[in-house]
Design a protein around this nucleic acid. Structure first.
Length: 581
RNA sequence: CGGGGCGUGGCGCAGUUUGGUCAGCGCACCUGCCUUGGGAGCAGGGGGUCGGAGGUUCAAGUCCUCUCGCCCCGACCA
């Protein structure tokens, strides 16, 4: 492709609207343009990268037996009402009406559609297992679109759905997708890690997320480098122990005026924060919950959801405290049920041995000391509800776990019969009995991969995508088109490289200085630059610059193709699949 | 949805506090000359009515009201 005719509007300055590197660079380098918050156009460079990512995804899905289809973005309300998700998804769905006033949504996901589809066409166990996927835009009216492509309201997603006769079949399908996903993320060149995950709105039992490591990641994951344990903060288990005073102390009410925070109380009473027990009050669809956790840790709402089997968990606000007759900042589990009848008390499993702790006294300006679990109060539920922290002990092997920030680029779920039952999607088994499909669903944020890759591969001059997803393989720079020899050389090289199967962007622009070409090239970040300029005149060799490392070598034109083939093979071998289909 | 910030040529910004030659700067763009290994130089030129609506005033980019959009921090997710 001749750059003089190629639409690559690069920007010299950072766009004011973009804060994170990947967002800035994708705009500056002419990969994307914003249309509205969380809505983007892909320019030729961006589209080419996207296409490469899609093809890798496609190849791996096909390799593991999935078949590509295409479903509409536009979906009628009725389907969503059957599963109850028209309301559950709520404002996250982009809703609209047709001219007759019929309600539609732009699909945020496709479980309803695919399940209905398959239930109509698949009648027998003989046709199972089946795995169907598509690559297509999804619409989610995110409360807060962010970071360009990373949290967009319209984005490209690969979603796959598997249908099996039973649990074992589902596990097998799931396992295949796990392999496919590992291949995909290796092949697109991301530094990633697979973690245990919370299922959220999609539902189902088991799920794993594929996380691209990045500072700006919105997720926290905990990873054990010793045994390989890895989990999202939303459900990461960890071991930690706090020391409690041995002797039996009496429950004592202490005057702690205007000391509401853990920190204040600990200082005031001259005890470590770990002696304090926090009580957080949440509202759920089944009533109030008091989460009793260590003073120096946060409660994790998704863990509370799991422990109680509820969907909504919301911290109550200070106004609510007053209405409920609770003293804000002084709530504790002892005697709580008398003030708030019906409250479910949940205690974190790692502190059930606590003795002589400090809690709120449920009275303004007072705390209790000497609080001992089992003696002074008992919880209704003992569960893992407190957050894990960096350097906690691994739940499996006991080594220290590390916290990492990451971007979720893929998520696989074992749904079971959640959707097939609510949509009455059944098949006949060998005995002629009607059975609901066992389903799995599997998502990849295709456009998000692009952002994540840029986030992992950039410097102060621009980005450098891994070869498998870079828009071109080579960037041929003709520095001085006015020089006949140089121009001829570059033109010939362009033809030679193209004829040898390389994807080349050829900067043949005549009205642009070398400095601009260098800057644009580094910004756009095509993996390898071939520079035809002064050095060629001096040494009769072209200069090759590896964008990511800045490394430069001189290669004669005769040896160029061989050199490039070696480089290319070597580069691709770094990003090869690990699982066979 | 709560908190904070911002909307002025294509992009990045100044001007708003203290209404009145304030519509300006840099980049980009167009023409010409010149230059060609790290976003060149000189000369000339085109382009905005200040997010939108309403109001106050002799006078509004500047003050008031409403409204729309965008970004950042928190609760949600590929």
């Amino acid at each position: 492709m001749r750059q003089s005719k190629f639409y690559v509007p690069t920007l010299k300055e950072n766009p004011a609207e973009a804060e994170v590197q990947s967002h800035r660079l994708l705009i500056r380098a002419g990969y994307i343009r914003k249309v509205a918050a969380g809505v983007y156009t892909f320019l030729p460079l961006g589209k080419r990268s996207l296409q490469k990512i899609e093809n890798i995804v496609r190849e791996e899905m096909n390799r593991f037996g999935a078949q590509e289809i295409l479903m509409p973005a536009l979906q009628p309300k009725e389907l969503w009402e059957k599963t109850g998700r028209w309301d559950a998804y709520g404002p996250m769905m982009m809703k609209l009406k047709d001219r007759k006033g019929r309600d539609f949504a732009l699909g945020p996901t496709h479980e309803e559609l695919i399940t209905t589809l398959v239930s109509l066409d698949v009648r027998s166990y003989k046709e199972l297992p089946l795995n169907l996927y598509q690559i297509q835009p999804k619409f989610r009216d995110e409360p807060r679109p962010r970071f360009g492509l990373i949290r967009a309201r319209e984005f490209i997603m690969k979603d796959a759905y598997s249908f099996d006769v039973d649990e074992d079949g589902l596990k097998e399908s799931y396992e295949k997708m796990r392999k496919a996903y590992n291949n995909v993320f290796r092949r697109v060149g991301l530094k990633f890690i697979a973690v245990k995950a919370h299922t959220g709105l999609i539902g189902g039992s088991d799920s794993e997320e594929f996380m691209a490591l990045a500072e700006i990641g919105e997720d926290s994951i905990f990873v054990c480098s010793n045994c390989g344990y890895a989990a999202n903060r939303e459900l990461a288990k960890s071991k930690f122990t706090y020391k409690w005073p041995e002797e039996d102390r009496a429950l004592t009410k202490m005057h702690t005026p205007a000391r509401m925070s853990v920190n204040d109380v600990a200082q005031f009473l001259s005890v470590p924060e770990t002696m304090l027990i926090k009580t957080m009050i949440y509202r759920t669809e089944k009533g109030y919950v008091a989460a009793v956790i260590p003073g120096d840790r946060e409660a994790v709402e998704t863990k509370i959801q799991t422990a109680l089997g509820v969907n909504n968990v919301e911290l109550i606000n200070p106004d609510d405290f007053e209405k409920l007759g609770l003293p804000f900042g002084y709530v504790g589990p002892v005697g709580l049920k008398e003030i708030l009848p019906g409250v479910v008390i949940v205690i974190d499993e790692r502190i059930v041995d606590f003795k002589n702790g400090v809690t709120g006294a449920n009275e303004k300006d007072y705390h209790l000391t000497g609080v001992t679990y089992g003696r002074d109060f008992v919880a209704d539920i003992v569960a893992d509800i407190a957050e894990a922290k960096d350097e906690d002990a691994c739940p499996n092997c006991g080594e220290a776990i590390k916290e990492e920030k990451a971007i979720e680029v893929g998520h696989i779920f074992q749904l079971g019969t959640k959707y097939s039952e609510s949509l009455d999607a059944c098949f006949l088994n060998e005995k002629g009995e009607r059975k609901p499909f066992f389903m799995g669903c599997y998502g990849i944020g295709v456009s998000r991969i692009l952002s994540a890759a840029v986030e992992q591969n950039n410097d102060d001059r621009g980005m450098f995508l891994p070869l498998p997803i870079a828009p071109f393989e080579l960037h041929l720079l003709l520095l001085n088109p006015a020089d006949k020899l140089l121009k001829n050389t570059a033109e010939n090289l362009y033809e030679l490289l193209s004829n040898n199967g390389f994807e080349v962007l050829y900067d043949d622009r005549e009205d642009v200085t070398p400095g601009v070409k260098f800057s644009d090239a580094d910004l756009i970040g095509i993996p390898l630059q071939i520079i035809v300029g002064k050095k060629f005149l001096e040494e009769s060799k072209v200069e090759i610059k590896i964008r990511s490392t800045g490394e430069r070598v001189l290669v004669s034109t005769e040896n160029l193709i061989e050199y490039l083939n070696d480089w290319k093979n070597n580069e691709y071998s770094k990003f090869s699949a690990v699982y066979e289909g």
